[in-house]
C-alpha cells in the first residue's frame, strides 16, 4: 500500500512538470493552431538559464527561476516574430516544418554552446522528508506546490484581467476577437511569451530532480503532445487534467507492469479516452 502512495507522489511531481509544459503548448495551439514542436526545447533552454544563473552568477534559486522566465518569454516572443509570424498566411504545413526547424536549431545551438554532456543543477531543497512512511525530497513537494501556484496565477491572469482574457477570446472565436478589436499580433506574442515563461518555470522546478542536457526537451514534448490530445487540443482544463492523468498513469503503470510496457499504459489510456471522446476530454464544442 505504501508503494502506491509513494507512486502517487511521484506521479504528482511528474504531472506538475507535464502540466506547465502542456499548458504552454495548448495555449499556443489554441490561438495559433500551430503544434509548436519546439516547445520542449524552450524548456531545455530554460533549464540551462536557471542552471547558469545559479552556478555562474550564484543567484538565489527563486530569483534564477524568475529571471529565466523573463529571458524565455523574450526568446519565445522572438521566436514567434521570426519563425511563425512570417508564416501566418501560409498553409499550416509550413508552420509545422518551421517548428521542427526551430527545434533542431535550438538543440544544435545548445550542443555547440554548452556541450552535449549531462549537467546537474545544485539542489536547494535537498532534505528528505518522511510523510507517513513516504520518503521524498522537499524538492518534489516544492515542484507540486509551485506548479499549483503558477497555475493559480495563470488562472487569475486569464480570468481577471482583460489583457489575459484576450488569449482565451482568441482561442474561443478568432474572428470574434478580431471584430472587437483585439490585436492578433499582440496576442500571439503574449501567448508565446507566457507559454515560454511557463516552460522555463517547469524547467527550473524540475531541474534539481533531473539532468540537464541538450536533448532533454525531445522526451518531454512527446508527452506534452499526448497530454493535449488527451485533454482536447487547445483546452486549458484539458491540459491540466491530461497532465496529471499521464503523470499518474506512468508512475502507477510502472508499478503494475514491467518497465517495457510502461509507455503502453499511457498510450492505451489515450486510445481508450479518444475512442470514448474522439476530440479529447475537454474539447470545445462546435469545432
Amino acid at each position: 500500500m505504501e508503494l502506491y502512495f509513494q507512486q502517487l507522489l511521484n506521479g504528482l511531481t511528474l504531472g506538475s512538470i507535464y502540466c506547465l509544459v502542456a499548458l504552454g503548448l495548448t495555449l499556443i495551439y489554441g490561438i495559433m493552431h500551430i503544434p509548436n514542436f519546439a516547445h520542449g526545447h524552450l524548456y531545455m533552454v530554460g533549464a540551462y538559464c536557471v542552471l547558469f544563473l545559479c552556478t555562474l552568477y550564484g543567484l538565489n534559486y527563486w530569483m534564477a527561476i524568475l529571471i529565466s522566465m523573463v529571458i524565455l518569454a523574450v526568446i519565445g516572443i522572438i521566436m514567434e516574430r521570426l519563425v511563425f509570424h512570417p508564416l501566418r498566411d501560409s498553409p499550416p504545413t509550413n508552420s509545422f516544418i518551421a517548428a521542427v526547424g526551430a527545434l533542431l536549431f535550438l538543440e544544435a545551438g545548445a550542443t555547440v554552446l554548452w556541450g552535449a554532456d549531462y549537467r546537474r543543477m545544485p539542489e536547494v531543497f535537498d532534505k528528505v522528508v518522511n510523510i507517513f512512511g513516504i520518503m521524498a525530497t522537499q524538492q518534489r513537494l516544492v515542484v507540486i506546490f509551485s506548479a499549483l501556484a503558477l497555475m493559480g496565477a495563470l488562472y487569475l491572469f486569464m480570468k481577471k484581467t482583460l489583457i489575459g482574457s484576450t488569449i482565451e477570446a482568441m482561442s474561443q472565436d478568432r474572428e470574434g476577437a478580431f471584430l472587437v478589436g483585439i490585436d492578433a499580433n499582440m496576442v500571439s506574442m503574449m501567448t508565446f511569451g507566457v507559454a515560454s515563461a511557463l516552460a522555463a518555470a517547469a524547467a527550473g522546478l524540475a531541474g534539481p530532480l533531473f539532468l540537464v542536457f541538450p536533448s532533454m526537451g525531445g522526451l518531454l514534448i512527446i508527452k506534452a503532445f499526448v497530454i493535449i490530445v488527451l485533454g482536447g487540443m487547445g483546452s486549458i482544463p484539458g491540459a491540466v487534467a491530461g497532465a496529471y492523468i499521464l503523470g499518474l498513469a506512468e508512475s502507477l503503470g510502472a508499478t503494475v507492469f514491467p518497465a517495457e510496457y510502461k509507455d503502453l499504459v499511457a498510450f492505451i489510456l489515450l486510445v481508450i479516452i479518444l475512442s470514448i471522446r474522439p476530440t479529447g476530454l475537454f474539447a470545445k464544442e462546435g469545432r
Binding site: L14, F210, A254
Partner: peptide
C-alpha cells in the same frame, strides 16, 4: 528484475519506488 530505459525517461522515481518496495 526490472531494467528500464535510462535515456528516454524523464523521472526515474517510479522505477526506484517499485524496486524498493
Amino acid at each position: 528484475n526490472s531494467p528500464f530505459s535510462y535515456n528516454t525517461e524523464t523521472d526515474f522515481a517510479p522505477y526506484v519506488s517499485k524496486a524498493l518496495a
